[in-house]
Design a protein around this nucleic acid. Structure first.
Length: 688
DNA sequence: GGGACGAGAGTCG
DNA sequence: TTCCACGACTCTCGTCCC
């Protein structure tokens, strides 16, 4: 619903009003924020941010942006008359080419629900009506109603700052089930006007209403009015609409008479040119805080029209695609075709928590993220081969580390295996956020891994083949359970100390959550997910590849202490007893399964996990994993835990990261982050 | 030189 | 008391390898 923006001006010690240089989006004009005491908001945001790690990081980012601007100014000043003339020719030709693509034959309507989440909550709980209310948590708001906006409260604002601005503010936790329900109702309406409408988010959509206008012989204004009435009738919610010859302009138009209003820009070139001439560049989607500053501070461009006036400089200092974008904005051009279905390009999840450098806790979070990502991928039938680990340090520095694999993966075990290596390389580090993203998906829509050597665990068990080419993929991490340390070396999968083998979710993610309000947006979601993990639903059909790492133990937090001791003393011992005894027998699969009888009918004899008797499928799966481990162990003829690292590496085989090993010799990104600025801006590295 | 890849940054809702 | 999210996309640049 919102984006967060804050930039810190270099504080002038002599200034008695330092907050004035602390520019935040919170002080920008937005629908419903007319008449807000901007200075009070700015001062409050500044006072509550000053001195924090977040603030310090914003200062760093501000310095980086300033350096960018300075470099561009230098480039700008170096342009000779000859250069400018040369770039002007290129610009003129580009403008002609772009103008030739202008299409005024389509009528696009952008519809934007008014304060959607807040409106839905009010609809469901009328007692909220007329009271300042925000959807979100103490750490972050998703949106705020118009009563709250009068105080300067708005989306993407931290809740604790919002409460300072408006002490009576009511907080309502995010409930996506509700929003999805109402979003679907609105989409049913949209479909009547354009069966191929483009949903931009839960509360926004683009409709090509050209056909409706023609077929029904009504104007676009009438269509917009009718659609808005229809949405209100079906949902009880209001929305705003913008009509224009293309999507870019329609989006701008829908914001003009918000809330519960509309604006129509005629399909006429002169009307478009007039409209765009005085339009502030920041109104354009794709031009954010940084780009706006660069264009203003370096080129003196504040309106879209000025893009054309400075076209030679834009062509001279920006990349071709960036310059083309700026010039098309200056001409008021935008998308007019209905794009074909676009395949998802990545899938990710990330979680914020209280900053910690405890490697055990961090690894546990990685386990959780791997399972979440795997579940999402399996749900969507995706297999990916590029895994990116995202980290945010305690000082808010964001890092990403990626690896591209030779084969496609989706199982939590595979994800964890590769993510662990990436994470280990960053230690020691204090983190407040971790995330995993998978990209480079398989073209195969049937959900079959294109790598024929990659077996699923179920096929592995069913076939009884423990010697497949990729058995190492399922090498149980618990095999190293007696290493008594979480260690990942260059060639080694992460292993985990038996002492830390309990599920630490409750303590690591709930107790450490940055927000103590259980009903908060982010943390609330985490809790839900965790609850699902702790008490698995037997109805879930997800084919979990549940590698029996010790971190897979789903033991509730109140049992962590006993679990810690129990596993240290007994988990290894039971593993020894169970597996080694079974080795001796080495009988049929069914015989071997007998070895995995659940203690007291609910406790796994191998690892100590507790699953009630009613969790039949989960218990069966769990037993199967141990069985698979054992089969692998037998096949290899060795006990994994006795492997030397080199042997383990050899058994695991190629992981795909070798081709990029040399990259690791580069200076650390932390060090390089602010260094190569001069090199960066021969052409700017902005993305447009 | 060009493609693939990794990392960082910016933007949006 | 609480102290700045999450998921997705795009672009740019540097490095490596063929």
């Amino acid at each position: 619903m919102a984006k967060s923006e804050t930039s810190v001006g270099s504080e002038d010690p002599s200034s008695s009003r330092p907050w004035e240089s602390y520019h935040t989006v919170f002080t920008n004009a937005k629908a419903g924020m007319e008449g807000v005491d901007k200075e009070k908001v700015q001062r409050t945001v500044y006072e509550m941010s000053k001195g924090s790690k977040y603030f310090e990081n914003e200062e760093k980012k501000e310095a980086y942006t300033k350096q960018k601007i300075e470099n561009m100014r230098i480039q700008y000043s170096k342009l000779t008359a000859q250069d400018i003339s040369h770039h002007q020719k290129i610009a003129d030709k580009t403008i002609l080419d772009l103008e030739a693509t202008r299409d005024l034959s389509r009528i696009w309507l952008h519809v934007d629900m008014d304060a959607f989440y807040a409106a839905v909550e009010t609809l469901c709980n009328p007692s909220l009506k007329g009271r300042p209310m925000a959807v979100g948590s103490m750490s972050m708001l998703s949106t705020a109603n118009y009563e709250a906006r009068k105080f300067g409260v708005r989306a993407a604002m931290p809740g604790f700052i919002a409460r300072k601005l408006c002490p009576e503010l009511l907080f309502v936790p995010v409930d996506f089930q509700k929003y999805n329900h109402y979003s679907n109702l609105t989409r049913k309406v949209f479909q009547k006007y354009d069966p191929n409408f483009l949903a931009a988010s839960l509360d926004e959509a683009y409709l090509d209403i050209t056909s409706v206008c023609k077929e029904r012989g009504i104007t676009s204004r009438e269509v917009a009015e009718e659609l808005r009435e229809s949405v209100h009738f079906e949902t009880g919610l209001t929305c705003s609409a913008g009509v224009a010859p293309n999507r870019l302009l329609a989006k701008v138009c829908s914001d003009i008479n918000k809330p519960n209003g509309q604006f129509v820009l005629p399909n006429d070139r002169s009307a478009v040119v007039t409209f765009i001439s005085s339009l502030p560049i920041r109104k354009i989607g794709g031009i954010g805080k940084v780009t706006e500053r660069i264009l203003k501070d370096v080129f003196g461009i504040a309106t879209c029209e000025e893009m054309l006036q400075k076209s030679s400089f834009l062509c001279g200092l920006f990349s071709r695609s960036s310059a083309d974008f700026f010039l098309s904005v200056g001409l008021g051009l935008g998308g007019t075709d209905t794009p074909q279905y676009r395949m998802r390009k990545s899938i990710s999840n990330e979680r914020t928590f209280s900053a910690t450098k405890d490697e055990v806790l961090l690894f546990q979070k990685l386990v959780d993220l791997s399972e979440m990502l795997s579940a999402d991928m399996i749900k969507e039938g995706l297999f990916g081969r590029t895994l990116t680990l995202k980290l945010k340090t305690a000082s808010f520095e964001v890092r990403s580390r990626a690896v591209t694999l030779p084969s496609y993966i989706s199982s939590s075990g595979d994800i964890l295996k590769h993510a662990s290596k990436l994470l280990k390389a960053e230690f020691p580090v204090s983190l407040r956020l971790m995330g995993l993203r998978m990209s480079h998906f398989s073209e195969d829509k049937n959900g079959i891994p294109p790598d024929p050597t990659q077996k699923t665990l179920s096929s592995f068990i069913l076939s009884g083949d423990a010697s497949g080419g990729k058995t190492s993929d399922y090498r149980p991490l618990v095999s190293d359970v007696c290493d008594n340390t979480f260690s990942v070396d260059e060639n080694c999968c992460p292993t985990y100390c038996a002492e830390t083998s309990c599920d630490l979710r409750d303590s690591s993610m709930e107790n450490q959550a940055s927000d103590s309000t259980s009903s908060c947006h982010v943390i609330g979601n985490i809790n839900e997910e965790l609850n699902e993990t702790v008490v698995p639903q037997s109805s879930e059909p997800q084919p979990k590849v549940h590698e029996p790492t010790d971190t897979d133990h789903t033991i509730k937090s109140d049992k962590v202490d006993s679990c810690m001791g129990q596993l240290e003393a007994s988990s290894c011992a039971r593993w020894e007893a169970g597996v080694n005894c079974a080795d001796d027998e080495a009988g049929s699969v069914s015989d071997q399964k007998q070895l995995f009888r659940w203690v007291d009918d609910y406790k796994c004899p191998i690892c100590g996990i507790e699953l009630p008797p009613s969790f039949i499928e989960e218990r069966q799966e769990h037993s199967d994993f141990h069985l698979a481990e054992k089969l692998q162990g037998e096949e290899s003829g060795n006990h994994h835990r006795s492997f030397m690292p080199q042997q383990r590496a050899a058994q695991r085989g190629h992981t795909g990261s070798s081709s990029r090993q040399k990259k690791k010799q580069k200076p650390s990104p932390t060090a390089s982050k602010y260094v190569p600025i001069d090199a960066f801006f021969v052409k700017t590295n902005q993305n447009f």
